[in-house]
Structure formats: structure tokens, C-alpha cells
Amino acid sequence: MFRRYINHLCVILFISLCSSPLFSQPYLVSLNEEQTVQLGNLIWKNEGQQKLAHLTTWNENEDFPSLGIGHFIWYPTVDKGPFKEQFPQLLTFMNENGVELPTWLTQTSTAPWSSREAFYEAFDGPQLTELRQFLSEQLALQTRFIILRLEKAIPIILDNSTALEQLVIKQQLTQLSTPEGIFTLLDYVNFKGEGINLSERYQGHGWGLKQVLLAMPINYENPLRSFGFAADEVLTRRVKNAPRDELRWLKGWRVRVHAYQNIKVTR
């Protein structure tokens, strides 16, 4: 009897949530111009300390450079690795918004540096110098690109979730619907992705936005603090399951996600 009651209650809750605006309408991020600038600076600070030199980086033990305020991946080969490549999509987005790209960016479909060593040998050369300057002048469009990614990500995450997972995710998104919560979602989806790509998993476990939302408890007082602890749990699991040593990154990741509770968005 009790089990039937719980099942009936879940059906009622599911129908109620499905009829809510979050289900029936696209997921849209509404930020004013000042908030968009603040968001871009936050992401650039989290990814590259807001330093011009960090707009073009290639981390040790990675097979690709990371470019722009969001450290968008660009593979140097036609055969792509397991992580989602974003930089070519960013260039397409810029072109669609009337930005004239440096000529050499339009003439290659892959990153023109064959290795990390080649990348840093060319770091102060004309291409990368021009690229850093170009990216520093297009902060607003990079931020809009990240916003668009979240708007696309939420429906995709829901489409790749069970009915029960959808219930949990929608409740968490409702709790994170404040400007500070939106900033948190935007930063994390840029940081670690949607969590639905099967190639972005270690031992069957992902570490993206979906996994963090599902790891959050149902009841809590501070959603930003709860998100940070859930992200800490998910990222710690990633490091434990990783095929190679990622422990050196975990401390910085933890600092980043626990700082979400201190975000203050201008009104």
C-alpha cells in the first residue's frame, strides 16, 4: 500500500513538473549587459586568472590546446579525442555574428600545432600573438557562446535522463534559478561539460553538470553550497577512477566549485 502511494505521488509530481514552464518551454538564460560582462570575467578568472597569456594554453599530459576565456578545446588532428571540442564551434558562432576572423583561422580545420612543444615554441610568434589579441577583443561573444551552450545543454540533459532523474534535475534547476545559481550552472557546464557524452566517463561515471545536479541532496538551505559539495564529490570520484594521475588538479577544482557559494551578481 505504501509503495503504491509513493508511486502515485511520484506520478502526480512528474505530471506537475512536466506542465511547468521549465518543461514546456526552452531553457533560456536572461542576463543584462552588466551581468554578462561579470560572467565573462568570472569564467576568465576561473580558467585563466584573467591573464592575456592564458588565453592560449596547452596543459601538460593533454593532447590539445585550450583557447579563449573558456579554455575551449581544439584538437590538432582529424581524429578527435574523448573530450568535447568547442573552439571550432566558437569560431563559427563568431563568424555568424559578423566577426572577421584572422585569415589563418579560416584556412585550417584543426589546430596547426602538432604537439605541446611545438605550441610553446610558437607561443610568441605571429599566429598565437594575433590569436590572443583577437580573443581578448571578443570577450562578449565568448560569454554569449557559453550562455548558448547552457541553453542547449539543459534540454539535452533532460532528454538523456530517466523520468525520475528529470524530477530531481528540475527541482535542482528551480533552486538554482537565481542569478547566482545561473552563474554557477554556466561556469560548471563550461568547466566540465554536460555529463552526457559516454566518452567523457571513467569506469562508467561522468563528472558533468548532470552528475552534479543528481548528486545534490533534495533538501538543503543553500543551493550554491550544496552544488559545490556535490561537484566536489563528483570530481573526487573522477580522480579516483581516472586512468592516469589527475590528483594534481583536484585541489584547484575544489577551490573553484566551493567558491560558487560566494558569487555575488550585480542587479
Rank of each mutant, 00 (worst) to 15 (best):
M1E: 12
R3F: 12
Y5V: 14
I6C: 11
V11P: 05
C18H: 05
C18V: 07
S20H: 06
L22A: 09
L22S: 09
L22Q: 11
S24H: 09
S24W: 09
Q25E: 14
V29H: 00
V37H: 03
Q38L: 13
Q38D: 04
Q38M: 11
L39Y: 03
G40E: 02
I43N: 08
W44G: 04
N46C: 14
N46T: 15
G48M: 04
Q49I: 09
K51Y: 05
A53K: 15
L55I: 07
T56A: 15
E60N: 10
N61T: 10
D63G: 14
F64W: 12
L67F: 05
G70L: 03
G70S: 04
I73P: 03
W74Q: 00
Y75S: 05
Y75L: 06
P76T: 08
T77Q: 10
G81W: 01
G81C: 04
F83D: 12
K84W: 06
K84I: 10
E85R: 05
Q86M: 11
P88S: 03
F93G: 00
G98F: 02
V99W: 01
E100Y: 12
Q107Y: 00
T108E: 03
W113L: 02
E117A: 06
F119K: 04
Y120W: 07
Y120H: 06
G125D: 06
G125V: 01
Q127K: 15
F134P: 00
L135K: 02
S136L: 01
Q138H: 03
L139H: 07
L139W: 01
L141D: 00
Q142M: 00
K152A: 13
I154V: 15
I156H: 13
L158D: 07
L158I: 09
D159W: 00
Q166A: 06
Q166P: 05
L167F: 06
L167R: 11
I169R: 02
K170T: 13
Q171W: 13
L176R: 05
L176T: 07
L176M: 07
T178P: 07
T178E: 04
G181W: 02
F183K: 04
T184D: 06
L185K: 05
K192C: 10
G193P: 08
R201N: 10
L209I: 10
L209S: 09
V212N: 05
L214N: 10
M216G: 03
M216V: 07
P217E: 07
N219A: 14
Y220K: 13
E221G: 14
E221A: 15
P223Q: 04
L224D: 00
R225L: 14
R225P: 05
S226A: 15
A230P: 07
A230D: 03
A231G: 02
V234K: 02
L235R: 06
T236D: 12
T236K: 13
R237C: 09
R238S: 08
K240G: 11
K240W: 08
K240E: 15
N241D: 14
N241E: 12
A242P: 04
R244E: 08
D245W: 08
E246C: 03
E246H: 04
L247K: 10
W249V: 03
W253I: 08
R254W: 06
R254D: 08
V257N: 00
H258N: 13
Y260A: 01
N262F: 12
I263N: 02
K264V: 13
K264I: 12
K264D: 09
